[in-house]
Amino acid sequence: MLEGLNKHFESRIRLGVMSVLMVNDWVDFNTLKEQLSLTDGNLASHIKALEKNQYIEIRKGFVGKKTKTTYNATEVGRLAFKAHLSALERFLKL
């Protein structure tokens, strides 16, 4: 394993979720799904994993009577993702 690379970001889906959340605040599930062209089950498990690591935070709200869950990258998540990107770039420059 390359130095500095974060194993939590090894999955392309988690990489994708973090990419969207780095440049957008509070994104809902369907938007994430559409942006990454994924199915429900696939995305949900990766979101749980990211939440467990405290890389993203979850907010449940209401739109009318429906619940709407939105996701945001935490400061920890942003730093971890940036570190991962720098490691990737360093590696590619060698």
Partner: peptide
């Protein structure tokens, strides 16, 4: 192989960031 994979990932990240904001 690794370099190829990492390069693809970086490009994918760039593409997703652009597509989700523009």
């Amino acid at each position: 192989m690794d370099a190829q994979k990492h390069l693809e990932n970086l490009n994918e990240i760039k593409r997703i960031m652009e597509r989700s904001t523009r």
